[in-house]
Amino acid sequence: MQRVNMIMAESPGLITICLLGYLLSAECTVFLDHENANKILNRPKRYNSGKLEEFVQGNLERECMEEKCSFEEAREVFENTERTTEFWKQYVDGDQCESNPCLNGGSCKDDINSYECWCPFGFEGKNCELDVTCNIKNGRCEQFCKNSADNKVVCSCTEGYRLAENQKSCEPAVPFPCGRVSVSQTSKLTRAETVFPDVDYVNSTEAETILDNITQSTQSFNDFTRVVGGEDAKPGQFPWQVVLNGKVDAFCGGSIVNEKWIVTAAHCVETGVKITVVAGEHNIEETEHTEQKRNVIRIIPHHNYNAAINKYNHDIALLELDEPLVLNSYVTPICIADKEYTNIFLKFGSGYVSGWGRVFHKGRSALVLQYLRVPLVDRATCLRSTKFTIYNNMFCAGFHEGGRDSCQGDSGGPHVTEVEGTSFLTGIISWGEECAMKGKYGIYTKVSRYVNWIKEKTKLT
Rank of each mutant, 00 (worst) to 15 (best):
Y91Q: 06
R404A: 10
K438S: 15
R191V: 15
T186Y: 11
L325E: 01
V377S: 03
S187Y: 13
E86N: 10
G236C: 03
S448A: 11
A307E: 07
N113C: 04
E340F: 10
C117D: 02
R298H: 06
E86H: 06
W453I: 01
S49M: 06
G432S: 15
V359R: 13
E285I: 10
P44E: 13
R298T: 10
P197Q: 13
K446Y: 02
Q143R: 01
K68W: 03
V263P: 00
S350D: 09
E171M: 10
F251Y: 09
T209I: 10
V242C: 04
Y444H: 04
D200K: 11
F123C: 03
K109P: 02
Y352I: 14
L376W: 05
D110Q: 12
E124I: 09
N113Q: 14
K152E: 10
V331D: 00
G230N: 13
V374M: 09
M394G: 04
E67F: 00
N328L: 00
L103Q: 14
N113L: 09
S217T: 11
H361Y: 11
V257L: 06
W453Y: 02
I428C: 01
E456Q: 12
V92D: 12
L321C: 02
I454M: 06
N222C: 05
N48V: 01
R298N: 15
N80D: 15
A233V: 08
C119L: 01
G50K: 06
T461H: 15
L369D: 04
K234M: 07
V326T: 11
L211D: 12
T271Q: 11
N306T: 04
N304E: 13
A37V: 11
M8S: 13
M65H: 09
V227T: 13
T332C: 06
T215W: 05
V174T: 10
I297H: 06
W453S: 00
K234S: 13
S107Y: 07
E61D: 04
G398C: 02
E159N: 08
D110K: 12
Q216T: 13
S430H: 04
T186P: 13
G105S: 10
S49C: 03
W261D: 00
V368D: 05
L327E: 03
R43A: 02
G254D: 00
N222L: 11
L372N: 12
W240K: 01
T276N: 09
D232W: 14
S430R: 03
W453D: 00
E231D: 10
D200T: 07
S385N: 12
M6A: 14
S49G: 07
T215V: 08
V326H: 13
K146R: 13
L325P: 00
H415L: 04
Q90P: 06
W431I: 09
A380N: 10
V353L: 05
K455W: 05
S99V: 11
Y115L: 03
E420D: 15
L23K: 02
R140N: 13
